[in-house]
Design a protein around this nucleic acid. Structure first.
Length: 173
DNA sequence: TGCAGAATAT
DNA sequence: CATATTCTGC
């Protein structure tokens, strides 16, 4: 006879993995800053729309800080110089405030549009919004507005939505 | 060289 | 807005 102990044969490892299983992963843990007040309401009360700070901003800031500590000096262009040092699981900063305008001194082709990186957090928010709207009502403009992420354009969302639809088509069969 | 993901064009 | 095509990094 197998003599199972009172704990039902659960080893430490089992318990640990079970415990770990129930834990939220990184994407669940890191919330994107959500405005406490809806945009309409805010504007109705003339509340300044300024304090939007996205996760991207935070990540970028921390990268900037670490970079300066390490003596590196890149902040904006992930285009010309791809530094992939330590940022892997969060490599989030694919976006800087605005670079459509070349308000630089005009010698360099600073018109480089930064490539948006869809981080897990960003994607999760995207998925949530799309799910909330329903796949039928999820059009780029609405999704973009509801995501409410600074710097995120309708084009960004449209492109991602295209992929996402293809993904849904492929998986749900 | 092929693929995936993002941008841009239709 | 949807879809197709192009671009780019890996």
């Amino acid at each position: 006879m197998a003599d199972y102990t009172t704990n039902g044969g659960f080893s430490k490892e089992d318990r640990v993995s079970e415990w770990e299983f129930g834990l939220p992963n990184g994407t669940d843990l890191v919330p994107l800053s959500q405005p406490l007040i809806p945009p309409q309401l805010a504007s109705a009360f003339s509340i300044t729309p300024e304090p939007y700070r996205t996760n991207l901003d935070v990540t970028r800031a921390s990268h900037k800080t670490i970079s300066s500590i390490k003596g590196q000096y890149h902040d904006n262009n992930i285009y010309g110089n791809n530094f992939k040092t330590f940022d892997d699981m969060d490599g989030a900063d694919g976006e800087c405030s605005d670079s459509r305008k070349s308000q630089r001194i005009n010698d360099e082709p600073v018109t480089k549009r930064v490539r948006l990186v869809w981080t897990p957090q960003l994607h999760k928010r995207f998925v949530d919004v799309v799910a909330h709207l329903g796949i039928e009502n999820a059009v780029p403009k609405t999704v973009t507005e509801m995501m409410n992420v600074e710097g995120l354009t309708r084009e960004n969302v449209a492109s991602h939505l295209q992929k996402y639809r293809l993904y849904l088509k492929r998986t749900q069969r």
